[in-house]
Design a protein around this nucleic acid. Structure first.
Length: 856
RNA sequence: GCCGCGGUGGCGGAACCGGCAGACGCGUAGGUCUCAAAAACCUAUGAGGGCAACCUCAUGUGGGUUCAAUUCCCACCCGCGGCACCA
């Protein structure tokens, strides 16, 4: 057993400093002096699950904490908050199966996870802790929803405005007016298909449906149309796309969002239905292929189908539509699937050449994209080509590829060519390039009233309601006469009622529908109304939480304007760290809400998160994803108990690049733990617990000073670029050197402790105290380094002959090229390698190498 | 199928903007200390060859550009992530 009382006792040290920080509120962010430059470091707040933290969470938290601590030492007023994204399914499912109140389980889980987080020594401002399930918090989530409900999107100014400012066309009746207004609200109701699982008797979120079956139990899931709340995110598609330019995010994430929004530019073209006074509009990105349109396809659900289908075809078409409607998601995504469809016995006129072409229905055309109808150009669209082949429809080539071999096949109708080329079979447009043709034909269509330039997005409006209990209730009432009204702000928060049973009602409505005395309301005028019984999705609370941290206890506003201006200045949150799994949904939704709040003047920046960094996944020791069933889960509590929080933090950062996926290795933890032991022994006499005798108030020798300055620079630079693994490596090199020195300069040790402190704060505080300092080092200045001291006096250069290293020379750092050449050529090994061959040239890369090139 | 990211010793990884591949850590082997062990410390450690000085090969595979390629270009293989008929 260890008898030495001065050994590194991480348990005691960590407990001591965590308590110190808490008691002194060391990391409280200041709101009182807005002249101090601010830095806002944000973590994606966790869902407080019953499982507690896994080692993946602390990875991101450690990275952000290092930056937070570093920035404090750099003189910034740092805001580094944490909270709980506590609505969500697991608590509700637990409630369904056990009857436990989700409020209570959630509270218990939060208490547990908070304690886990505190044990890791993160420098959070605990006075700003938030919880999305707290009525004082969700009051404002509901408030934002009401703003959506009470706003419309002004197309010319491209921004949201209060609904009272919506221009209403003259001559509408009261009812029509109401309808008109409702149709323009940014939060609106619609009948949309949801994932209904009859076996479970509940509606599932998309992420709970895997391959057409419920994630739990594997029961079939069908699409069922239900009344839902939607948010008009599509109005913001263009701005969400444009403003990606102004954020400092990984390119890959920007790309995912760009693809998700899916902008395409083309034209809308009008086809007249033969024998009917009806138009079919189609959207195409290839108006230049109009002359090659040989048929049309409309989506099975298209409203025009009923009207224009011929009597002879009606039965078959009806049957097809029913079959299509029954298709599950699984069938739709089936790759090997053959194209199906039915002609509807109607024809349309191609506006460019007057040709009559047949109209078909097929489920490869989606009602939800574009106009729900297409012109089919089999020669130049893979899907149309496949369909035309199957049903023997004509294929007319109208674009000639450059490649003559390809061109031949295309002309024979044997090859589908989707690239750009030269126009053929297109009347007076023949010979034009694809780009020119697009431009000309679009203008021509516009001039003749047959079409117009058009833009489409893949992005759909956001299905914002869930048929659940454990979420924010909508502040909405449905009146007897069928109108929908929002609560007034004074009535917020609308709290969740206590329920006896968390099971969904059998009509696929949320459990709230069963709470009669909550649902039924009498309005001031004596009329009756019912509350909306859907609740908001988990995304709602996380869409704006970063704003609440700015002013978490404000009862008058989501946050104070001045505080918002201060903390969000410079483009929003300065650093946002979290998992890449939120690349699209959370980050897109939050950006959407932020822009909306910006339009209404509640925030001052166009974007919420200036810089984004994703941490990678941590795998189990076996290289597999951590999971209970594999038994490879590493519990952070155990690591902290065995090696301490500082070792845990250091190891998580030392494993490899922050963004990389990497396997856990307990021996690696021991490695960094040994490093901390070494640091301890470098400063402390293990027998006495006092400062070690080797530490003297002296000037350090030159190599030590040089290494110290190099290390300060390297660690600072690496923290700025999130290369924590190499920062740690640099510190290890330093400790390996200094630990061997019999005399250690106190000021050198102090500087080292300071640069270690953001990464391993507890041991650093303890050693700082042992070095005679009374107060926390959290606000000490980050050490400066001296560029002059960093430079080596002599450097070693490799000497290559024809690219192969033959010798090394040591030479003064300031030696010029000529001197280096001379020295290199005078090397015996080099002369031997040159022998009698002729010297062609000598390449000198200062401070790197010399390459002597010989002619062969 | 399309898009994105990656592939370096026994393992995690390092390498500025094309300039000495393998920093740092783990593991392994040998040693010091010890009655012994643990801890700590020291030495070695990509592969092959040679008594040795040294030599050759080596960053997924095959080509190319260059005085010089892990780094740039082309083709391909493998792994991971995302999307899924978006006209």
């Amino acid at each position: 057993m260890d008898k030495k009382k001065g050994r590194y006792n991480f348990n005691a040290v960590e407990k001591k400093w965590q308590q110190f920080w808490q008691e002194h509120k060391t990391f409280r962010a200041r709101d009182d002096d807005k002249s101090i430059p601010k830095y806002y470091v944000l973590d994606m707040f966790p869902y407080p699950s019953g499982q507690g933290l896994h080692v993946g969470h602390p990875e991101g938290y450690t990275a952000s904490d290092i930056v937070a601590r570093y920035k404090r030492m750099k003189g910034f007023n740092v805001l580094h908050p944490i909270g709980w994204d506590a609505f969500g399914l697991p608590a509700e499912q637990y409630a369904v199966s056990t009857g436990a109140d989700p409020k209570e389980t959630t509270q218990k889980n939060i208490d547990n996870i908070r304690q886990q987080i505190k044990a890791l020594g993160f420098s959070y401002d605990w006075d700003r802790e938030i919880n999305t399930t707290d009525p004082n918090y969700y009051k404002w989530t509901q408030w934002i929803f009401l703003k959506f409900f009470n706003s419309y999107f002004d197309e010319t100014e491209r921004k949201a405005k209060p609904i009272e400012q919506l221009p209403i066309p003259a001559g509408l009746s009261e009812a029509e007016k109401q309808k008109y207004v409702n149709a323009h609200r940014l939060a609106y109701e619609a009948e949309v298909p949801v994932n209904w699982c009859p076996a479970l008797g509940t509606v599932l979120a998309n992420e709970e449906v895997v391959g057409g079956l419920s994630e739990r139990g594997g029961h079939p899931v069908v699409r069922k149309p239900m009344r839902q709340w939607m948010l008009r995110i599509t109005k913001y598609a263009e701005r969400l796309l444009e403003d990606l330019d102004e954020v400092d995010w990984p390119e890959s994430i920007k790309k995912l969002q760009t693809d998700w929004i899916g902008k395409s530019i083309g034209a809308e073209v009008n086809f007249k239905v033969d024998g009917f006074d009806e138009d079919i509009w189609v959207f195409t990105t290839r108006p230049d292929t109009l002359f090659g349109a040989t048929y049309m396809v409309i989506a099975p659900e298209h409203p025009l189908v009923d009207k224009i289908t011929s009597e002879q075809r009606r039965k078959a078409v009806q049957k097809y539509r029913e079959r299509a409607a029954r298709k599950s998601d699984l069938d739709r995504t089936d790759l090997a699937k053959e194209k199906t469809g039915e002609p509807i016995g109607a024809y349309a006129t191609n506006p460019v050449n007057g040709e009559k072409i047949p109209i078909w229905v097929s489920d490869y055309v989606l009602l939800s994209y574009g106009t729900g109808a297409i012109m089919a150009v089999p020669a130049h669209d893979e899907r149309d080509f496949e369909f035309a082949k199957k049903f023997n429809l004509p294929i007319i080539p109208v674009v000639e590829p450059q490649d003559s071999e390809q061109s031949e096949l295309v002309k024979q109708g044997k090859l589908c060519f989707v690239g750009d080329g030269k126009a053929i079979n297109s009347g007076r447009f023949d010979g034009l390039s694809t780009a020119e043709f697009k431009e000309k034909i679009t203008n021509w269509l516009e001039e003749n009233g047959l079409g117009r330039k058009a833009v489409n997005y893949k992005l759909r409006d956001w299905l914002f309601s869930r048929q659940r209990y454990w979420g924010e209730p909508f502040p909405i009432l449905h009146t007897e006469n069928g109108n929908v009204i929002g609560l007034s702000e004074e009535d917020l928060p609308l709290e969740l009622p206590v329920v006896k049973n968390y099971r969904p009602s059998d009509t696929a409505q949320s459990p709230l529908a069963n709470v009669d005395d909550w649902v039924n309301v009498v309005l001031p005028d004596g009329s009756k109304a019912k509350r909306e019984t859907n609740t908001m999705p988990q995304w709602a609370g996380s869409c704006w939480y970063y704003l609440r941290y700015l002013d978490p206890n404000n009862n008058q506003r989501i946050c104070d304007t001045e505080k918002e201006k201060y903390w969000m200045s410079g483009g929003g949150v300065d650093l946002y760290v979290g998992g890449a799994e939120h690349a699209v949904l959370h980050l897109l939704y939050a950006r959407f809400w932020h822009k909306f709040l910006y339009d209404l003047g509640y925030v001052s920046t166009r974007e919420p998160f200036k810089k984004l960094v994703n941490q990678g996944m941590i795998l189990g020791q076996d290289g597999q994803k951590m999971s209970k069933s594999r038994g490879n889960v590493v519990n952070p509590d155990k690591v902290v108990a065995d090696y301490g929080a500082d070792s845990m933090r250091l190891y998580e950062m030392f494993m490899g690049p922050l963004e990389a996926t990497k396997p856990w290795n307990m021996q690696g933890v021991e490695g960094v733990h040994r490093f901390l032991q070494k640091v301890w022994r470098m400063v402390v006499n293990e027998d006495t617990g006092e400062l070690i005798e080797a530490i003297k108030e002296t000037q350090a020798d030159e190599p030590t000073l040089r290494l110290l300055n190099q290390t300060i620079k390297k660690v600072g630079d690496d923290i700025e670029s999130f290369s924590f693994n190499t920062a740690i490596s640099a510190m290890m090199i330093f400790v390996n050197h200094l630990g061997k020195q019999p005399v250690r300069s106190k000021s050198v040790i102090e500087k080292f402790i300071l640069i270690l402190s953001p990464l391993a704060p507890h041991i650093a505080e303890e050693l700082w105290e042992k070095l005679g300092h009374k107060d926390t080092l959290a606000y000490e200045s980050w050490p400066e380094y001296d560029e002059g001291l960093i430079k080596e006096k002599e450097i070693e250069l490799a000497v290559q002959v024809n690219g192969r290293i033959r010798d090394r020379i040591v030479i003064a750092a300031e030696a010029d090229e000529e001197q280096i050449k001379q020295k290199a050529l005078s090397s015996e090994k080099v002369t031997a390698a040159i022998a009698d061959k002729e010297l062609k040239k000598i390449i000198v890369i200062k401070s790197r190498l010399v390459n002597i090139v010989l002619s062969i």
